[in-house]
Amino acid sequence: MASPETGSTSMTNPPGQLRIDDPSLQRMPGQAQSTLNQLIGETKTGLMGIRPFLHISPETTICRTIELMYDADASGVLIVQANQVLGIVTERDILQRATEQYERISQQPVADIMTPCPTSLKFSDSVQTAIKQIAQFRHIPVVDQRNQPLGILTPYRAFEFVDALLTEVAES
């Protein structure tokens, strides 16, 4: 946890998370002999690589947020309070809302520049739904039934997942 001045910060990456190279995942496409298309339409978003993800409190300063994103090589960060997603800040938000007046606002809370109530995906949404959303939004929070954050989906993570399925289908 960070100091009170910067708010709480955390990189969530729990042990045992399902990875794209998890052996259990690799069993699916070949043995199911289903088409990749079907799998994309049928599999849960929660199975995609949605972790690790960076999350911070809304009180975190803009300056600290940028440092954390840079250090974590993350292009987006969730703003979380009481285990609920309040908003999201991405490199695009920083470009659009912070860059030109950075010296003046760098110590302000990140909540001032976040995108509130971002479009989210449920854990149980299909990968197909996720892929359609990711064509519109580069960073999509993934939440559980209680809207608690589970991760962030990015295009790269979607590509990794689909590419693994492509490989499996090709080899089956």
Partner: peptide, 14 residues
């Protein structure tokens, strides 16, 4: 990628 995702009904596996 999104343009190439067709709709499919769920199967028993899914």
């Amino acid at each position: 990628l999104a343009k190439h995702c067709a709709e499919n009904p769920p199967t028993e596996v899914s």
